[in-house]
Amino acid sequence: MHRTRELAHASVNQAARAFRFLTRHVPDRREVSLDIPMAKVRRRLPQVLARVEVTRLIDAAPTRRASTLLMTACAGGLGA
Rank of each mutant, 00 (worst) to 15 (best):
I36Y: 00
A80E: 13
K40M: 06
A73M: 12
T72P: 01
R42M: 06
I36R: 01
A80W: 11
S11R: 12
L70G: 04
A73N: 13
R30F: 05
R64V: 15
A16V: 10
V48A: 15
V48I: 11
R64L: 15
S67T: 13
R43Y: 15
R65E: 11
T68I: 15
P27K: 09
L57D: 07
G77L: 04
G77A: 11
V26Y: 10
L22H: 09
T23N: 09
L22M: 13
T72E: 13
A75F: 10
G79Y: 08
D28H: 07
A50C: 11
H9F: 03
R17F: 02
P46K: 10
S33A: 11
P62K: 01
R51T: 03
R44N: 01
I58E: 09
M1H: 12
M38F: 12
T63L: 03
R44Q: 02
V54H: 02
L45Y: 05
G77P: 06
T55K: 07
R24E: 08
T4W: 11
R17N: 10
R20M: 02
R51F: 04
V12C: 02
A8E: 02
A10V: 00
T23Y: 12
Q47K: 08
T4E: 10
L45S: 10
R29E: 08
L69P: 01
R29S: 13
T23R: 06
Q47C: 01
A18L: 01
R20E: 08
S11I: 01
L45K: 11
L7K: 02
V12P: 00
L34E: 09
R3L: 10
V12W: 01
M38C: 05
D59H: 14
A75N: 15
R20D: 06
